[in-house]
Each structure stands twice: as C-alpha cells, then as structure tokens.
Design a protein around this nucleic acid. Structure first.
Lengths: 343, 343
DNA sequence: GTGAAAGCGCTAACAG
DNA sequence: CTGTTAGCGCTTTCAC
C-alpha cells in the first residue's frame, strides 16, 4: 500500500480511501482511477488481518454445527453458506462441535479471532436453544427454530413438503397412501404429517391413522413397515426420509412388488446416498440445504452491516425465496424436485 | 496486556515474554508467576490477529476439499483435523470447492488471511495433482496420493482392508467369496483387490475372476450383481463400499436369502447411512477418517513448526499409527471394526 | 533481568 | 480534496 502510494504520488490515506470505495466526493476521480490502476497492476491484495486490527471487523463468520460429522447433507448447507460468504466478501469458518463440552471452547476460540457473527445449524429442524455465549453477537439459526422466537432462522417449509409429496402420490393414482414418519418428536414430523393430512383432504381422501406409522430404524423399523404392508396394503408411501424409504423397498422386494409399478414411493432426501443408489426408482423431495445456507449468511451479513440486501444477486434456485429483509424469523420454502416418475 | 503489565508493575514486553513461555532464564521466576496469576485472574486472552500481524504466523490452517458437499464421511476427517488443530493451538478453516474454478479463488482468499499451511483432501484415495498455488506452502494430502510422490500424505492401507475383510469372510466359513468392486480406476480398488487375492491365497482358496465384478451404480450395478448371484452362487461378498453392499442385499431379498444366514456380506463403510440402516445385518470395515484428519494436521503442524511431535498425546484409536515424523509420504493403517457377526 | 521504543499494514480523525 | 498523525495489540531488538 505504501508502495502504491509512492508510485501514485499520493499518501497512503488516499490510497486507503480509494481502495475502500470511500473516495466519492473526497478524492479527485482521475487520481482515484490512477490509484486503482496501479493497485491492480501491482496485484495489490489488502491484508485483512491488518485492517481487522484497526476496524474490529474481521469479515469472518463462524458456522457452528453439531453434526457435520454425521450427516451427509450438511455439506450442501455449508456450500451454500460459503458461496454467499465469498460473494459478500466474508470468510466462513466451520466448526463441528462433537459434544456440548467442546462447543463453548470452539466458540471462544472463534470469538478470539474476532468473528463478526455466527450461524448455528442443526441437521434437522427442531426447537433449539442457542448457546448463551452467542447471545450478544449477530446470530442466525439454520434449519432450526429458536425456542424463544427471537433469533432469525432459516427453515424449510415442512407443511409444504408433506402437502406436495402427498399430492404427487395422489396424482400418480394412489388411493391408499401411507405415511412412514419419525417416532421422535420433531418440527418436521408434525409439519409433514399436517401437510399429508391436508393433501388427503384436498383430494377428498379419508385420513386413516392406520396408514400412519412412525418408526426409528433398524430391525424394529423394518418390522413396523412390514406389518403395515400386510395389514393395510398401501399403494403409495410418503416417507419421512430416504432411509425410511429403504424399508419400504426392502419389504416390497420381499413381496415381489416393484416400486414404480405396483407401489409408489416418495421420500425426503436426507442422505443423498440412498437417493443416488435407488435412482431412478425413488422420487425424492430435496430439502433446500444450499439455499438455507445461502440465505442464512445473506441474512447474517445484512444484520452485521445493518443494511438491506436487495441489490444482491440471488442464487439459482427453484425455491420461492423471501426478501432478505423479511420479518424475523424468516422462512424459506422448500423445493420439490421430481427425480423420476413414481408410477 | 497493558492492563496486566500495570497490575504486575512490569512492562508489556515482560508480559509478552512470560505469556509466550519465553521467560526461561530471562524473567525472574517469581515475577513470571505473578504475571501468569494476574493474567488468568483477568481472564486474559491473547488477540491472535494482533500477534499474527507482527509475527506473520496466523495459526490458521486451510482444509481444502472438493467434496465436503457430497460425501457424508468427510465429516469424520474434518472432525479429526479440527480436534488436532485445536489441540495444537490452531484454527481450521474448511473450504469446500465446488468446481475447479472456485478452488484457486478460495485458496487465494485463505492465503490473504495468512494461512500457515494447507490440508488437501479427497473423498477417496486417488492419484492427485495438488494445485500449483499450494506448491510453496506447507501442505499435506489427506486420503490422496501425490502424483509425484513428493508431498506428504495420509492414506488408508487399502491392501490391508481387502485382506482383512476377505479373511473375515473365510473365517466365517465362506468358500465362494465374491468381490463387488468399483469399475472406476482407483488406488483403493487395486489395493483391495490385491488384498482380496492375497487373503484367498493364504486361505488356500483359488482365485476365480468370475467371482469378481466391478460395477458403478443404479440399474446396471444391480443387474451385474444379480447375474453374479445366478451364475456363481457366492456365499460371501466383499463389497467395495456399503452402497455396493446394498445391491447384494436387494438381490438376496429377491431370492429369499437372508444375509447373516445364507450369505455373508462385508463392506467398506463409506456412507454411514447404509451401515446404520442395515445394522446389525451388515459387517462393515470403517475407514479411519478421523485418524487421517488428525494425523494430517499433526504432520502439517510438525512441518510448519519444524519440530518432531513425539511428545504430543495421540487420539484414541485402534489403528496402528506411525510416528508423526515417519518418512514422507506417511501412511497409516486401517481399522477393521466388526459391527456384527457375519454368519 | 527488565523496559523503552519501533513497527507489522492498515484506518480514521483532524488539519491543511 | 489530500496529507499528517496517531494508534489497533502484540512482538522484538536493543539499551540499561
């Protein structure tokens, strides 16, 4: 910077002003242009550390997630977050906290590096109590719902997922549509079940709770789905996730039924691997992980910089996205991507 | 720091010396102790940015991976890397580069933040040509093999994986052991096939290439495995990964065969989701992702700081780990974890 | 043994 | 409109 000040015959302060775009009406435009030209010629890159030291702003965002280690699709969220971050001139530091203990440590470490704000992400939408150490910093929850409803969050529209998936099965000609849900209490579970019921209602089909089975995994899950097959003979299955869809596949295979012909299956893709392996047999609903990550960062940046971000170009997506300065907590809708015909 | 210098009645330089452990024979021990006491009482935390500005060392490591977004188990590696990083007093910045284009940009961004060194990770061991922009910085490859054999790397022992898995099937009483491999050229594929062959040889079983089928995925993979079933009637399967094991499951289910009774299946766990869903039916070999991440960082730190790290405590692991200053490229072995009996 | 002073690269008052 | 100056918090010679 000193070097370019020399070459341009101005002082470093002028260079600083120009390079930070704060030269409007302060520096003669021709000299500003000259400075910029020399800067690019010299391949000047600002030293973010030095400016951080002075300004207190690091342009570093902390992305905290408990479960990066265990879920495959956290990656999409991170990628979206990273895309937005680099677009807005920020750097993303991702920390996966294994248990409760390491979490506060990691947060402390990040804070010492002067993180401007935090993303706090969950692997599936649930009521979340953000760590108190994050209370005083800009914070956005991702795929999580604040227990107090005060912290901005970006979440999928679970009701819509259930509604869209069920409607899709109806349109495929299914009359006895089962819901293979999750037996753990989750926002997603409730929302999707409601969506399922609403879709049935709108299709003038009766809701029958014998067609709903909530399972966990492994043997018991397989048994439960197996029983459902034998007792109710459903012709369509809306599955909480692709792992649960697998149980349906397994049961169908054992009975000589072909998915896509004898029965229809649609599942929410949580694992990618299943969806890829079963493709093109399984129709999946994809959660907008990338978009959630992207919008969470966009929102966070808007909070940090105290400005609306209408001028920012948006990521390519089929999801209906709200304006970035939508009321808090902001929600985004979910994309329904059809990977293959179901019947 | 100024504050604690005041309270202790010494100058900031003294405080700096003490807090950096560089007081040996320079600062009177009682005054040093006093400084340390005051520092902890005040809850002093050094400002890493400020010291970086002076020293040029940021204690930031860049973890570059193309595929964090698509693989579930990258998380284990990242977690291991993060664990080691925080243990050694470093911060890890993970960037997932989507395509080639963003990679150099992300690297440039990291470098501007003064990254001390880089980890370059792949999702599966393959010959890798590290980006030239990384040539001048400390660099360690993770789950990848340098095309020139010059860059240190941490890799699983693929031969051992094939050998151990096959031996396990032999011990379970299998006589016709199939290998369901990968039709893409990969280091892992070759190594595992050799291990498979060596294990058969040691068990006095003939190698028969009709029992080897290399597949990709989806329908063609399922068909190939199906043909293998009908033509060769294997009683044991060593699968390249758990996704490929699924094809065996599907074929078995269609034929009324029960895994763990009629046939034995062992697969390398690449996806976690499958392993969890099929548990306790599938016996899996787990790749030492955590350990790879951990050791890669340990190695990188030893390069950066120019010292051997024998004194560092090691992570709990069942894998035989080499000393951290082992000849380059360092290799680590793989853990064979038995999740359930196979027969 | 300890302190004073310079400076890492940059920004922001405040003069001019 | 532009330059001078004074730091951000820390490390590191170099005197004392």
């Amino acid at each position: 910077m000193k070097e370019i000040a020399n070459k341009a015959g101005v002082s470093v302060s002028t260079v600083s002003l120009v390079l930070n775009g704060r030269d409007e009406g302060r520096v003669k435009s021709e000299i500003a242009d000259n400075v910029r030209a020399i800067a690019t010629k010299l391949g000047y890159r600002s030293n973010p550390l030095a400016s951080s030291l002075r300004t207190g702003k690091t342009h570093i965002l902390g992305f905290i997630s408990e479960e990066v280690a265990t879920t495959p699709y956290a990656g999409g969220m991170i990628l979206g977050a990273q895309t937005a971050a680099s677009q807005f001139g920020y750097m993303l530091i991702t920390v996966s906290t294994d248990g409760e203990n390491s979490e506060s440590e990691e947060i402390a470490a990040l804070k010492r590096y002067g993180t401007d704000g935090f993303l706090y992400a969950k692997m599936s939408n649930r009521i979340t109590h953000a760590p108190s150490s994050l209370a005083k910093t800009p914070l956005v929850l991702v795929d999580a719902t604040d227990s107090l409803g005060k912290i901005p969050s970006v979440e999928p529209d679970e009701f819509q997922i259930g509604y869209d998936a069920t409607t899709r099965l109806v349109k495929a000609g299914c009359a006895r549509i089962a819901y293979v849900g999750c037996s753990e209490p989750m926002i997603a579970q409730d929302g999707r079940l409601e969506g399922y019921q609403a879709a049935l209602r709108d299709a003038c089909l009766d809701y029958d709770d014998r067609l709903v089975v909530n399972v966990l995994n492994n043997g018991p899950a397989l048994t439960a789905v197996s029983d459902l097959f034998d007792a109710e003979h459903p012709d369509g299955f809306f599955c909480f996730n692709d792992a649960r869809a697998w149980y349906v596949y397994e049961c169908a295979a054992r009975r000589g039924l072909t998915v896509g012909k004898d029965i229809s299956v649609i599942g929410v893709d949580n694992h990618r691997v299943f969806a890829e392996t079963l493709e093109p047999m399984l129709t999946t609903v994809e959660l907008p992980h990338f978009e959630m990550g992207y919008w969470a960062v966009a929102k966070l940046v808007s909070i940090i910089e105290g400005r609306s971000m209408d001028d920012v170009s948006r990521p390519a997506t089929t999801a209906p996205l709200p304006p970035i300065d939508a009321p808090i907590p902001a929600k985004i809708h979910c994309t329904l991507i059809e990977k293959a015909s179901v019947k």
